[in-house]
Design a protein around this nucleic acid. Structure first.
Lengths: 225, 225
DNA sequence: GCTACTTTTCGAACATGTTCCTAAATTAGG
DNA sequence: CCTAATTTAGGAACATGTTCGAAAAGTAGC
C-alpha cells in the first residue's frame, strides 16, 4: 500500500472556483436563459472566470450535465408507493419518466447506463423490489428494470428530438411525404394508416407500453383483488 | 396552380458535386477510417471541394447521416417472415434492431421519429400487420410498433454509449462506486445486487424485453399449436 | 456579343468544446 | 527570507459544424 496518510495538506494555489459554484451558476443560467444557452464560455463568464478554468473542476461538459442531472434527481420528492407490487413498479417508473421528461436538457446525458443520483435510487429500488415481490428472481427483476429503462430513454429521446425538429422546422416532414406515397400492394397496412400516422404518433402512449413491458415480464400477473 | 411546366431549364452554374457523390464519399470514409473520422472538412477533402460546398447539397450533417441511414436500411435484405403473426413481429423487430446495432454511427441519427428508409418500411409493415393479424385495432398496432421502436432506440443508444464510455474509460465507473456503498436498510434489494449489477447489466436482454412488450400489447396471446 | 439571371463554389468568419502550456498564488523545507 | 513543490488560473490554439456574402460559371433574351 502507498503511504498510509497522504492527507495532502492544503498547499498549492487556493481555488477561486468550486464545483458547487459551477453547478449553481449552470442552474442559474439554464433557468434564466434556457438550456440551449448553457455553453462553457457563457458559464465561465457567468462566474467571472476563464473558460478553461472550469476544466479543473469538471471533466468535460457531459460530466457537468451528468452531475446536474444527479442533483436534480436528488430533489425529486419520494413518491408514496402503492401496496401492490405491480402498481409500485408502474408508479416508480412513471415518476422516473416524468421527472426526466420535464427537463429537456436531460436528453444530452440520458445515454448513461442508469440513473445513479444517489437519492433517486429509490425508484430503481422500488422497481426491482416490486418485481421480486411479484415472484421474479433477482435476475429477472434486473431485466425488467433495464427494459423499462431502455423504453423510457428511447421514448424521451425520440419525442424530445421530434419536438425539437418540429420547433425549428420550416423544412417539410420527410417522413409524411414518404408515407403518403406508399405502394398499397406492397405495404397495405402502412398505406391504409398513412394519413393518420402523424396524429397517431403524436399521442402519448408511454403508459400503454410501460404496462405491457411490466405485465410481460412479471411471472404470473394474478392481480390480487 | 402555378405555371404548368416550370421544368426549369438547365441554367446557373453547372454543379461539380452531386448528392450521391457525397454519399459515396461518406461511405468510403467511414469504411476506411471509421465513423469517428467522418467530419465535414474531411469529407470535403475526400471529394476535393471546399467544406462549405457540401451545404448546397446537404442541409446539415444530420441530414447527411439520415440519408446514409436510409440508404443503408434499403440494403437490408428482406427477411423471410414466419407465418405466425406473433413470431413475425419478433422477427421483423429483431432484424430492425440488429441492423441498427451493427453500425455504431447510427446512434447519431437514431432519434428520428421512425425508420423511413423507403424499402426498409417492410419491417414496420410486418410489425403493424402482425399486430393487426393478431387482433389489434390499427391504433393498437401503431402503439405496439412505437413501443418496440422506443425500446429499440433506447437499448441501442444506452448500450452504444456505455460501450463508448468504457472504451475511452480510464476514468473509474462512477455508478459501480455508488452501488457498492448503498445503505442496506434503505435500498435492500439494490444493495444485495450491487456486486452483480455490472455483470447483469452487461448481458444482452433485448429479446427478453421485446417479447414482453409484444406479449403485453397483443390482445390475447393464445399461441397456436 | 452583351446583359440579366441563376445556380454553384468557396473564402472568411463565428461559436462551440477542448487541450496544452505558461503564469500566478499559495505552503513546506531550509 | 528564499527556494521548491504544488495547485489553480488563464491565454493561445485547434478541430468541429455552420452561416454569410461575394466570386465564378454557366444559360436565355436581345
Amino acid at each position: 500500500m502507498p503511504p498510509p496518510v497522504p492527507t495532502r495538506g492544503p498547499t498549492g494555489r487556493p481555488p477561486r472556483t468550486s464545483r458547487t459554484q459551477i453547478m449553481d451558476a449552470a442552474r442559474r443560467l439554464i433557468d434564466r436563459d434556457g438550456w440551449q444557452m448553457l455553453t462553457v464560455r457563457r458559464l465561465a463568464a457567468e462566474i467571472g472566470v476563464a473558460p478553461t478554468t472550469l476544466y479543473h473542476h469538471v471533466r468535460d461538459k457531459e460530466d457537468l450535465l451528468r452531475q446536474l442531472l444527479n442533483d436534480y434527481a436528488d430533489q425529486i420528492p419520494r413518491a408514496r408507493l402503492p401496496r401492490d407490487p405491480h402498481e409500485r413498479i408502474i408508479t416508480a417508473s412513471t415518476v422516473m419518466h416524468d421527472s426526466l421528461a420535464a427537463r429537456p436538457w436531460i436528453t444530452e446525458v440520458l445515454t448513461a447506463d442508469d440513473l445513479v443520483g444517489t437519492s433517486s435510487l429509490w425508484m430503481v429500488e422500488a422497481i426491482v423490489a416490486g418485481a421480486i415481490d411479484s415472484g421474479c428472481t433477482p435476475e429477472q427483476a434486473v431485466v425488467l428494470y433495464r427494459s423499462v429503462w431502455y423504453y423510457t430513454v428511447g421514448e424521451i429521446l425520440v419525442r424530445a428530438t421530434a419536438a425539437h425538429r418540429r420547433a425549428e422546422s420550416s423544412r417539410p416532414v420527410y417522413r409524411d411525404a414518404v408515407l403518403l406515397g406508399l405502394d398499397k400492394s406492397e405495404l397495405p397496412h402502412l398505406a391504409a394508416l398513412a394519413d393518420r400516422w402523424p396524429s397517431l404518433t403524436a399521442r402519448d402512449t408511454y403508459q400503454h407500453g410501460l404496462h405491457a413491458i411490466v405485465d410481460g415480464l412479471l411471472p404470473s400477473t394474478v392481480t390480487p383483488s
